[in-house]
Structure formats: C-alpha cells, structure tokens
Design a protein around this nucleic acid. Structure first.
Lengths: 345, 345
DNA sequence: GGAAGCACTCTGGTCAACGGAGTGCCAATG
DNA sequence: CATTGGCACTCCGTTGACCAGAGTGCTTCC
C-alpha cells in the first residue's frame, strides 16, 4: 500500500483541490469537472490516473463505480495538516465576535455567547463548556434566608460563582464564623483539596469539637462545598444548522439527542481537548467518542486565563466543513478569552 | 354557516373519533376506515354525510378532493374542550417525574429538570422558564474579589439567586455598608421598585452626598441591581423529537432556530400563560406569536409557590399531540412544584 | 509520463400507467 | 326520513421504463 509520505507535488495539489471542491459543493468530484476548474489544464485522463493512486492510498473513495470521488477521513486529516494556519479572520467576523462578547465579565456569560457566536459564523454547531475540573477557592459566603434555609455562595479564583440553597438551621453569626474559618484557612486551595482537608480535620478533632467546627460540619454535610462551582456548564447552540447538513432523518434525530445530553458533550470535549495543548485541535471522525456523530468533526481549543484552563470551546460540524474558517474563528475567540478576562485581574 | 353549538351527538362522536385516529395515525382519515373501526358499525356513506356537515362547519378539511379529512384547529379546540380532564397520570410517568425531580431545592434546577422530564414523557419539546417579571428582594451581598472586581449576589424572596461580577474599586467596608443600607431599606421590595427608589434618592440627595451614597451610586451604576435576578432562564429540551414530527426540512430548521432564541420562547410563554390562570392552558395554533410554529400547540401552566408565580412550564408539540397525556403531565408537575418548594418554607 | 479515445456503468429525472383510497351523488330501503 | 348501497370520478403515490449526463478504466498513441 502506498505510504502517505510518498505523495508527490502533483498528487498533493489534486488532493487539496478535490477536498476543497467537495467541501464547497458536497458532490462527489469527478476528473472532468476538476480538469475544467484547474487552471493548469491537466487533462481528465491524467487526473484520473492520479485519482486512482490516491484511492489506492486510502485517501479517496467512491460512493459507487462511475461516481466521482469523495475524500476519506484520512484525506481530511492530511488536508488539515497542510493548512498554513496563517489565515486571518475576516473583519466582518471579527466585529461580529467582538460585538457579541463586548462587556462580558464572567466565564459563564462568555461561554454562552461564545457558543452562540461560533454557531453563527461557522454555520454549524457551537459548543462551549465553562468550568474545568480544578478551581481554586476564592471565598465562600453563607447567608441565612429564612428558617431552615441557608444560601451558600462559592466563588473561585477564576471568577466562577456557584450558589446553592441548603436546608439547615444556623444563626447568621455561626454562618459568618464558619465562612471566616473556611476563607482564612483555604483560600487558594482547589475545591477537592478543601474538601479533603476539612474531612480530615473533622475526623481528627472530633473529640474537641467546638461550636465553630460543628457549624462547619453541618454545612459540609449539607453539601455547601460539594458542588463544584458551576461544575461544567454546557452551552450548545446552532443545532438548527444540522438540518441542512445531515440528510438522513434518523441520524439527525440521533445527533440532536446526543447534543441534548450534556454529559455526552462534556465527555467529548474533555476526551479530545487536552489542557496542555496550546492551539486549536482538529479531530476528524468522532466515531469512537460519539457513535452518532461519526463523520463529524470537532474543532476546538481550551479556554485559558493566564495559564489556568477555564473551559473549552469548539465548533462541531460535518467533515465537509470550512476548516480554515472554523480554526481561525476558534483560535481568535480563545485568544480573546484570555485577553478579556485577564485584563481585569 | 353552521354554529358549533348545532353539533349533535352523532356528529360529536364522529368528530372525536376522527381527531383521535388522526392523532394516532397522522394520516387523513376516510369514511371507510372509520366505519370499520367504529364499533357501532355505521356505514361509510352515513359517515360521509356527517363528514360533509363537519367540513361545512369548518371543523374538517381535506388536503385535496379524494383524500380523507383532517381536523382543523377549530376541531382541536373543540376536542380539547370536550376532554373530561379527569384522567390520571400513569404510575410509570409519575415515578419518572418524581424520580427526576427528587431532591431539587431551587427553582432553576427544578425548571431544568422539568423541561427534560416533560420532553421525555410527552415525546415532544419540553419548555420551562424560571423567573417571572417581579421578584421581591431578599437581600444583596457584595464582596471584593481582587482589585477592580466585586462580586454582587442578589437573592430574592422566592429563592432565586443571581450573581454578577462588577468592575469597580471599593473597599470591603464600603461594600458592606452599601449592602447593609440596601438590605435594611429595601427588603421585600420588587427589584423594579428598588431601582426606582434608589434612583430617586440619588437624585434627591445629590447635594449632601456622603460616602455611603457614593458607594451605592457606584454599585448601582455598575449594574449591581440591574439584572433581574436570573431574569428568565429558559430551558428547552427534546428538540430531537421535532425531527419525527415535522417532515418539511425547511420548517424544521425554522423551528429549531426559533427555539434556540430564548427571547422568542419567553415571549411565547408570557404571551399565553397568564399569571392569573389557574389550570393548564392549551393554545392551539401558535401562528401569530411564532409564525414558524404555526400548526403547533402549547400546553402549559404557570409554576407557583404559594400564590407567587415563579416561572412556567409547557409542552410544545404538533397539533396532533396526545392532549390528554400532555395536559395531565403538565398539571401534575405544576402541582408538584408548589408542593416541593413550599414544604421547605 | 501525459493525452486522447472508447466502451461501459451508475445515477437522477421524467413520463406514463396503475392500483388504492376516498369522495359526491343518487336511488333504494326499513 | 334517516340510512344505506352502488357507481362514476378524482387524486395521490408507486412502479417501471427510458434517457441524458457524468464518471470510470483501460488501451493506445505521442
């Protein structure tokens, strides 16, 4: 079998031409039409020969004999590698993005709008999740609401806020004391670490419980620190674009259903978007993570503030997506994210 | 034109039979098949006569001559009026609902799960919005996060919590003073009233500004009280069910798009769900509110705790929806809402 | 190695024919 | 007089045949 490395210049040109016209038209592309479009005027026959080679190399396939060729996922991967990555986002898109994101101050809102604007300019599904696994505690705050009800607010260093209502009965004075205790002791810790340490201390000092530790225990047991601050909020938008993309109704249903399940989406993003990765990642063929979305593509990046990962954003679309455009859009927004939320620190 | 009141017994029976079989099959129903299904064994010819009358009364229509009849929206309205409303929800559905809603403590979460469970058991789109126009202030809380950043938390009497991050520079002491001022003066007021009054006072006392009022003004101008506490959070789920319902692709796209626009959904619900209404309301034909969803149906109810409206929930589906089922489900959840959130007061 | 020619294949669209389901109307009937 | 049976007619959806278009593979020629 021919190795991909064996691809020569002409082959590569023809391959990219095929990929691009297929992305543009959605129809299998044949040798004749390609030769007509191609400025250098290669004859259809020549192109056919090259195509045959590319087919053998597993880069092209035919829906049936006597149809044109369509790129395989392998071809898309190859194509994406070839992209220079140096394209700039069009000014129109830039203004759409900056307008949409103007004035956002917290991560949640940023992500919500991001998913929207991504779907808008990519004409595909925009996805964003806020909240990664680790967050440093900025502080907590407890407030007595009525009898038996206490509002707990958790703020992370990164600006995520999470509130929940607990059902327990403590005076505001006790609540304040507990909050002070937690804030003074654990500020800057990750939530996991905080929970672990509190558990340890409760265990250890069980004998010499004072009023304070009793309050802390009650609060802890009611889950005051349990929920990860907005543990992964998912925003999915632009699903209506799938209608144009997917012609098979049953598959369309499947996909919509999948995208409604937030856990699935989180799983998908976290499976492919690595915290360490720097730039935009393009994953072609989501079969193994989301069977219903085989022959789909994820173009995503982690969203960072400073070094810390605060979430991720991505475009989800069919393999015949405008890669260059989606990539630049995602990377543009990812950079913007850092800028917008960093400047205010 | 024949008045609806003129409908006799036989006519009514046949009409409901037509509506029900059309709901079940989705195909236009003809006289022959109806006579076969009908236990009393009326001949097709008789039924045809009745059908002709019903058509003239504007209750049935034909896609074309020589097709069966399908009910008009008028017929659906008539049909729904006829429903006894005394059906009980099946035990399976009841357990699905109670399981899904077990342990929720705040309105947001309740609504999120409600939209999901509604879509689940109705096999259509479940919609829920949390937050109505008016909320009484329980209290506010401000906390300095870092330089230039302040966390503002707004809690309403009804338990809704809204947080936002402001960009301004005040000491924690000033913030506390401002919070105390607002809490002591405005507790129990609606947010609109609070804003109006604060504006008035700022205006009035402009001459004799003290430090406190300066802080309040800064906070106010940064929008500390601006956002309605979670001003209407919208949850829409089950859109994948639309794929089976709507065969026209373009219309399907339109509908998905509409449902993605939260303002539209809010508009829809608030247009039809009246705070004063007691029970479930069925709106047949959403043409004027949402052109893209003509020949759709809204089955919804306000969600109350005690007397106060905290949001609303609804099922959205095609005219050929299982009315009885959807109605009982919605009313069941609406009742549950009151119970669950009331018991904790 | 590239170009041209040729025979062959497969799809998608159009058209006519047809069976099925339904209707309206009229005459017969209990 | 309300029902019913019968009959002629209409319209839809499906099927099969057919054809033009686009593409391929292979062989031959430069």
């Amino acid at each position: 079998m021919a190795r991909v490395e064996a691809i020569g210049n002409r082959e590569r040109e023809i391959l990219t031409a095929i990929v691009e016209t297929f992305i543009a038209t959605g129809e299998p592309v044949g040798s004749r039409s390609l030769s007509r479009a191609n400025r250098e005027g290669l004859s259809p026959a020549t192109i056919r020969n090259v195509m045959a080679d590319l087919s053998e190399a597993g880069l092209l396939e035919q829906p049936h004999t006597s149809a044109g060729r369509i790129p395989t996922t392998k071809a898309y991967r190859y194509y994406v590698e070839q992209l220079t990555g140096q394209a700039r986002l069009s000014p129109e898109d830039q203004t759409i993005i900056t307008d949409s994101l103007a004035g956002v101050s917290d991560v949640q809102e940023f992500m919500e709008r991001t998913s929207h604007v991504l779907s808008l300019i990519s004409h595909n599904v925009g996805v964003a999740v806020a909240g990664g696994p680790k967050h440093a505690l900025e502080h907590v705050y407890f407030s007595r609401l009525g009898d038996q009800k206490v509002l707990a607010v958790l703020v992370t260093h990164s600006g995520l806020v999470h509130d929940r209502i607990l059902r327990l009965d403590l005076s505001q004075i006790d609540l304040d004391a507990a909050a002070r205790y937690i804030n003074e002791n654990f500020r800057g810790w990750t939530m996991e670490a905080v929970r672990a340490e509190i558990e340890r201390r409760l265990e250890q000092e069980r004998s010499e419980y004072d009023r304070l530790m009793q309050s802390v225990e009650k609060l802890y047991q009611q889950g005051a620190l349990a929920a990860e601050p907005s543990a992964e909020t998912v925003f999915v938008e632009g699903t209506s674009n799938l209608v144009a993309t997917e012609r098979d109704r049953e598959r369309l249903r499947e996909m919509l259903k999948t995208l409604e399940e937030k856990e699935k989406v989180i799983e998908l993003l976290s499976a492919y978007l690595d915290a360490r990765q720097e730039a935009v990642r393009v994953v072609i063929g989501l079969d193994e993570a989301l069977p219903s979305m085989s022959n789909f593509v994820l173009i995503g990046a982690p969203a960072r503030v400073g070094g810390e990962v605060m979430g991720s954003l991505a475009v989800l679309g069919p393999t015949r997506i405008d890669y260059q455009h989606a990539i630049t859009a995602v990377s543009y927004i990812a950079r913007l994210f850092d800028q917008l939320l960093n400047e205010s620190e």
